[in-house]
Design a protein around this nucleic acid. Structure first.
Lengths: 223, 223
DNA sequence: ATCACATTGTGAAACCTATCACAGCTTAAC
DNA sequence: GTTAAGCTGTGATAGGTTTCACAATGTGAT
């Protein structure tokens, strides 16, 4: 029943779609597994705050299955989504900047992911380096290139102060990073091949405040 | 020179547009003020990772000025954007859940904003309540309603564990919140009039990892 | 077997967002 | 005063995303 189809080779897939697929995956894997073997598009949609049509449209991309009157086999669906989202094996990430926010994020993400793990942290402060926090050794920033190369790290979380963000980001790219999750409230200027996702806490809060004033939820969009 | 026009009363403005306006505001106010009195749309665009046409289009909304051959008066522009984004006076926010992440976010946001301030925190753990962290008193969650009413709080940051997020969110709404910045990795189900912005750190990182694998930055979008 | 039903998969339509491109200005230079 | 230059403001356009709506389909009841 598993139509392999073209499996829409992941090029030209929008960020929005990927975010939703990640959400579907999380909700599917987070549920009490086999309470029900099948799930309808509208059920998955309700779990994620998305319409059933949107769910079906997204699932077309991953080379789906799904039968009328029964819906999708949860395990099979989860497998298809993960095949689409992840490459075989584990992908490693680094966290750069062990301040308050960096440590909190590390505590949040450390030792959780099978497919994506934070394996090293970096800081300039010699007082912080060579310690182990939440299971991750902290290296001096100067060692970025060698450690990243040795561990095959291509993704980094950037939690350094705004003043040093651009400079540190440059070092990250020089060390071979291809994706950066940036918490510093600055616009990074980097080569095109590096994917940057900005999370600016202050701006997010102000956005909430703006829309809170004029009621009406308009949309639901996981960042 | 300040055309007042209709000033496009802030209804029906998209989330994206608001995010960009917040970004323009931040870049304008963060710069060394009067190094130059005027700024062109393409300059502001470059500072924010946005095209000049997009900048001009966005500025149409705020009831803009701007002269050919000189660009926009920075101070005046900043004023127009702030008039559009903020209501007069200060808006208060609360932070609920003083775990690692909550404390880090508090340290990040406390004592910064003129227009939007975190004025109270809440937790269920009696060991944490009635202390002052980063200048904010921590109240028991049971006092949500009274404290929120007294301080006029309508916006909250939710950093409680996933397991209690939905329940706590319900309490927030009951306490009069109209906007929630949700860090718990769950889809909250709340009345339509409550605006929810989700930030899921694990999913954001996985998104970066996905696009890092297939190169090519596609877009730049502040969250 | 056959039927009635609820769902899938998807072309088409609607909607939303960003870009193009240019008329109209405003300024500076001569 | 006239001209050249380069930007703003915006209608039109292109592009992207979501929703609609329905034929096709598998399932369970009769």
């Amino acid at each position: 029943m598993v139509r392999k189809k073209s499996s829409a080779s992941q090029h030209d897939v929008s960020e929005r779609t990927i975010s939703r697929l990640l959400l579907y995956r999380k909700r599917l894997s987070g549920a009490p597994e086999d309470v029900k073997r099948f799930i309808y598009s509208y059920e998955l949609g309700a779990m994620c705050g998305v319409t059933s049509a949107q769910v079906r449209r997204d699932l077309m991309l991953v080379g789906c299955s799904g039968s009328p009157n029964r819906g999708y086999d949860r395990r099979e669906l989860l497998g298809s989504i993960e095949d689409f989202l992840y490459r075989p094996g584990v992908q490693n990430a680094a966290l750069v900047g062990l301040g308050n926010l960096g440590r909190a994020i590390l505590s949040f993400l450390a030792g959780r992911h099978s497919r994506l793990a934070i394996v090293a942290t970096f800081d300039i402060d010699p007082a912080k380096t060579n310690c182990v926090t939440f299971g991750c050794r902290c290296y001096p920033v100067a060692d970025l290139r060698t450690v990243a190369a040795a561990a095959g790290i291509e993704v980094a979380i950037l939690t350094v102060p705004a003043a040093s963000a651009q400079e540190t980001a440059g070092l990250l790219v020089a060390a071979g990073m291809r994706g950066i999750l940036n918490f510093a409230p600055v616009t990074l200027h980097l080569p095109d091949h590096v994917f940057v996702e900005d999370i600016d806490l202050a701006m997010s809060l102000e956005k909430v405040a703006f829309f809170a004033r004029r009621g009406q939820q308009m949309e639901r969009k996981h960042a």
